[in-house]
Write a protein that binds this DNA or RNA. Structure first.
Lengths: 150, 150
DNA sequence: GTTGATAATTAGCTTAGCAAACTAGTTTGG
DNA sequence: CCAAACTAGTTTGCTAAGCTAATTATCAAC
């Protein structure tokens, strides 16, 4: 392992990782369609709102790394499903604050309980060290996305 | 960390991982659009063809875990870009064998050289142990998807 | 040789991303 | 204090990429 080969193995790792991520996210989409009635993008947004409290659509768009019009649509979906509530932003009349309501909290709790969710189901077949590896990988992926933020 | 909490931490890990994957794959899509002119799905297909030699569209669809009509479209795109070639399948007149042509090989080589590809760029900021974690995670993700195959 | 399965495609739908244009509030300079 | 510039959110219209159902062409088996 010289510094020379390390750069090659880096791009190899990158491309393997890329394939794994693209394919897994495809599998997630299929699974979500079949099971919860809420797509992965929508679920992720709901989880973010639940985790980070009342937020403006713009803040949420930034967290999820999508453009504002995309978040507008996602929020419309969550609202249609009755999982979130909006209150006018006291600080800015153009904006609103989005929060998870009771139904949304229940939905999140159900998801968390959900033993059959695609990844949880599969994680149960791995040994603890492997699960740990994936947990750390999730952190790393979030972290390297964070770096972008400038 | 008892056996009791282990099931909770499993679903927690699952949901963190899910978010990380969904967001990263979104970032990948944006990056691909901006840089190479070839989307992640299309690039992944090209890489698979390159790796696994001449294949029928059906085989490729199975590798990429998409349905055949989806692969039909992806192949049409690769063909339009002049990166692949089809020859009639000698064993089956309904089918054809898809292979990467010279331009496709160059494109793949360029991708491999590409120091600025989204993930490679970020991987370079991590220490070797972290890169290793992600490499193992990629393998694990592929493996747990494999389990599905029944 | 007809019948039933299978490979690929076509047609039509959906989701989820984008950019550009619009609306309505906010901020700022004069 | 009001007009101009800016900004948050939405609307509109486009694209990519997934799906199912239906077609077409070939293959296999009887």
């Amino acid at each position: 392992m010289t510094a020379r080969t390390s750069d090659n193995s880096l791009t190899d790792t990158a491309s393997q990782l890329r394939n794994a991520i693209v394919r897994t996210s495809r599998a997630l989409r299929q699974d979500a369609a079949g099971e919860t009635g809420l797509s992965p993008a929508t679920t992720a947004a709901l989880a973010s709102i639940g985790r980070s409290g009342p937020l403006t659509p713009s803040e949420l768009a930034e967290i999820e790394r999508v453009k504002r019009p995309t978040m507008t649509r996602t929020l419309a979906c969550l609202e249609r499903e009755g999982l979130i509530e909006r209150t006018p932003d006291p600080a800015d009349g153009r904006s609103s604050l989005v929060a998870v309501n009771e139904a949304g909290r229940e939905h999140l709790a159900r998801l968390r309980r959900r033993k059959s969710a695609y990844l949880a189901r599969r994680l149960r077949k791995l040994d603890p060290a492997e699960v740990e590896t994936l947990a750390r990988a999730a952190e790393l992926l979030e972290r390297i996305r964070e770096d972008e933020r400038g």
